[in-house]
């Protein structure tokens, strides 16, 4: 057995040693494409450290020394850290609601055979196909009626009804949570909601982690929602502050680059740490979806 293995390994080594020209070309093309993906982000970071005069005069490759000046100039009009905080509040709370109520709903559909279960579940699935912009004007109206315009709640509350979350978690429950778990909890005298909160919810952790990444990124990057529902600068999340940069600093390119860089850098850092998990959850979501 081991002999067979070593033989195949040797064969593979032979194949690997014969470097085909086509393989080299493929690698060069891959590297080129990767460069195209990276260069704009590199430009963004480097240009944020230069004065407007530098930027207007030549193509720049290395970082400059105007970072502090650009930063100070930017903070005169734009409180980027406030934007971070707002984005965190909105995306964090939205994600928590999406996960908890998505799981609650999925559990209800997966483990209780009430009348209308199938029809209602299909209804939830169907809502996934409805484009968001369809209710844009109506959303504005209901937020006005509920006095929620220009509040973070207007962006957070609707996250409790995320159809994709229901679908995603139900698949996971169907595949991994046996009825025996629930029955034994009932025998022990636990109520239905206690069973869900104490026993089921922790078991859903892997699915919720993957889903949470999606939900957080989606909410963090949301642009048209806050554009329509928020009016005060101090309540704006990052994407809206980025858009404000254009208005305030139309011709000051260094400051605008710096603002964009500050909005993207955290994403780069988070992605550098969690890229495997993030990509993994995209793949899971797609295959199950």
């Amino acid at each position: 057995m081991s002999q067979v293995k070593t033989e195949t390994i040797q064969q593979e080594k032979k194949i690997a040693k014969k470097v085909k020209p086509s393989h080299i070309i493929i690698h060069i093309l891959l590297i080129l494409l990767a460069l195209i993906c990276i260069v704009p982000f590199y430009i963004m970071i480097v240009y944020g450290t230069h004065t407007n005069a530098d930027i207007a005069s030549k193509f720049i490759i290395l970082p400059g020394q105007a970072l502090a000046d650009n930063y100070q100039y930017m903070t005169e009009n734009i409180n980027i850290w406030r934007g971070f905080l707002n984005s965190f509040i909105i995306a964090g709370c939205s994600t928590a609601l999406t996960l908890y109520f998505g799981a609650l709903n999925a559990y209800g559909f997966a483990k209780y055979k009430f009348r209308g279960n199938k029809v209602l579940f299909w209804f939830v699935l169907a809502t996934m196909m409805v484009p968001q912009q369809l209710g844009l004007v109506g959303t504005f109206r209901i937020m006005y009626m509920l006095n929620l315009l220009d509040t973070h709640l207007a962006l957070i509350l609707p996250a409790a009804a995320n159809a994709f979350a229901v679908f995603f978690v139900k698949q996971f429950i169907d595949g991994t949570i046996p009825n025996e778990v629930i029955e034994s909890a009932r025998v022990d005298g636990a109520g239905e909601f206690k069973t869900f909160n104490r026993i089921i919810l922790p078991m859903l952790a892997p699915a919720l982690a993957a889903l949470g990444i999606f939900a957080f990124i989606g909410s963090w990057n949301n642009f048209i929602g806050p554009l329509v529902l928020l009016f005060s600068n101090e309540k704006y999340p990052l994407p809206l502050l980025v858009q404000l940069l254009q208005g305030y600093y139309g011709t000051n390119y260094g400051v605008q680059y710096l603002g964009v860089a500050l909005s993207v850098l955290p994403i780069i850092i988070v992605f550098a740490i969690f890229s495997k998990r993030i990509i993994g959850s995209v793949a899971i979501g797609a295959v199950k979806g």
């Binding site: 209800g108 009430f114 844009l136 009804a161 869900f196």
Partner: peptide, 22 residues
Amino acid sequence: GYLFIAPFFIIFLVFGLYPILY
């Protein structure tokens, strides 16, 4: 089961369906 799915549907009716119908 109805209790488990109720919160989702209430939020959906208010913030999902109503805006579209309106």
